[in-house]
Design a protein around this nucleic acid. Sequence first.
DNA 1: GTGAAAGCGCTAACAC
DNA 2: GTGTTAGCGCTTTCAC
Lengths: 332, 332
Amino acid sequence: MKNGIKEIARITGYSTATVARALSGNGYCGAEKKEKILSIAKQLNYQSNSSAIALRSGCTKRILFCIPDICNIFYFKMIQGVIEVLENNGYYAMLYTTEKKLAKEIDMIRLLKQKFCDGMIMVSFNFCEENISAIRESGCPVVLTNKYDGQVQGDNFDYIFVDHTYGMALATEHLLDAGCKNIAVVSGDVKEQTTRERLDGYIGTLKKHGLEYDSSRVLDGQYNNDGAYRAFKQFIERGGRADGLIVSNDYAAMGILRFCHEAGIRIPEDLKLVSFDNTDYALCCVPTLTSVDMRQYEIGKYAAEVLLERIQGRKELRNVVMIPKLIKRQSS
Amino acid sequence: MKNGIKEIARITGYSTATVARALSGNGYCGAEKKEKILSIAKQLNYQSNSSAIALRSGCTKRILFCIPDICNIFYFKMIQGVIEVLENNGYYAMLYTTEKKLAKEIDMIRLLKQKFCDGMIMVSFNFCEENISAIRESGCPVVLTNKYDGQVQGDNFDYIFVDHTYGMALATEHLLDAGCKNIAVVSGDVKEQTTRERLDGYIGTLKKHGLEYDSSRVLDGQYNNDGAYRAFKQFIERGGRADGLIVSNDYAAMGILRFCHEAGIRIPEDLKLVSFDNTDYALCCVPTLTSVDMRQYEIGKYAAEVLLERIQGRKELRNVVMIPKLIKRQSS
DNA sequence: GTGAAAGCGCTAACAC
DNA sequence: GTGTTAGCGCTTTCAC
């Protein structure tokens, strides 16, 4: 069953060009012919073929949005930001998860190169020689959501990022203001860029206040709920003491709340808690969580805007840095 | 800058057919020629054009996965189920959010008709004449994740669903077993199919035990956190009493936990709580939540499998019903 | 105003 | 083994 423009042309006896003109509204077509064509098209339940249009026009009107993990509340607002901007500009967003795997990232870049999409927004924890050079080779518009220092003039990618160091400084300052003397941190693997950047903010702030940095107070909670629970539990059981705690994200903070409940540690009386991300879940906790808003919505929004500008032909580099914001609630 | 098969043929002096054979591995091509072709292809950074292949082959190797709301933990495991199956079969899943809007659903069906994808999995709270007839007209393979009674032999869609009535019966039975005498429900709008199906399970179980159904104990919490919080708060403040509560999902249950904490209602001592969905967040709460697993992972998995079978040519209808499972935890 | 024809990049049938 | 050619469905000159 084929029912393209050709078929309508055959039935009506007009040329394919005329049919195309009637259907698209571009170019002239007599009123009578147009009516007949539209009626036949409706009857045949005609729909244009998106692959043919993409092939012909060289533009798909879609963009690829790669995130490490779709099952993570952190990305909710970022996704919304991206989708809103694209939708307002007649583009579709296709979501893909890379599961933090380089091979999957490379696969997505390959897809991009195959003109599957007009551009890509990529969230990754590991921008390295391999994926960056693949992005360069693709020659297609790309926006990264991390800082990337090796960018050079003429590159085909831009980046948007949030200042993790500053965010951590905000959290640390806040706890110091609240009178905390021993601030512990439940974070992630220091091999990750984000973890290191945040650690800098923590150490820097302590130093600024003339306080000593004690590495035994910095725990690896793997950015997740159970990891945070176990890391802090172990810390306390080994005799660690803290009156302030900074946790990598709201989900992990829920693990801390759970442990503290079991251990009889009162929040905020015994321990003041600050987490990151300021997701909707920060409001659902008992107590509600003080959290550093990492501007996810704006990241998504600007990433999409910057990408569309590139697609529309901008050549100069464009990078945006977002400033985190501390939202105070019951937990501190 | 064009660098397709034609360009490689021009440079090497071979025919496009030979180049295509060398690149795809289909058909014969002399070793020497092949080597030269591959080397030039690499040099030119050649990648096949996905639109051209889709146009030519009539098959895109992608499927559209439409969900009402991507920012909802309920869908996490369903998404994983879908992605896993598709990935194992060489397909890509494209995620789209319809925001519970009929117009967006219709738009997605239009995309499907435009051969944007080979098939579609659609989650909707509102299968009606309009979207179902659009699906029929599309003639493309589709799987719905709700029960749809109007299906007829020859239809191009299948459905997978979970028995909400049974799930609600499980929850109600469990609370009755635990000794509850007054079981309240925080659910959603009865205009929605799901809400009505669950209500049937609640009323049916009460009746089975010779208990009276009191509609004032069934509250509309809009399936969300704040809605549940406010609905239950109002209920209690107006003098409502309950020793058992069934909440529409884990996220909403967190709103109940928050209210109970404020109101000094102890869980499970004063109020036994059962929620739905059994997401990871049920384990993060204090206390951990008894929750009815709605088999989201399996729904996603089977939806993808059934869809692929359709794409591969199955003509008979295929419908699957999943049985929910109660997972007992601290809250009851 | 309308039609004929070329071509986007690829593949497959057929010829040699 | 390799080349020629037609055509997937659409758009866009260009000619009439």
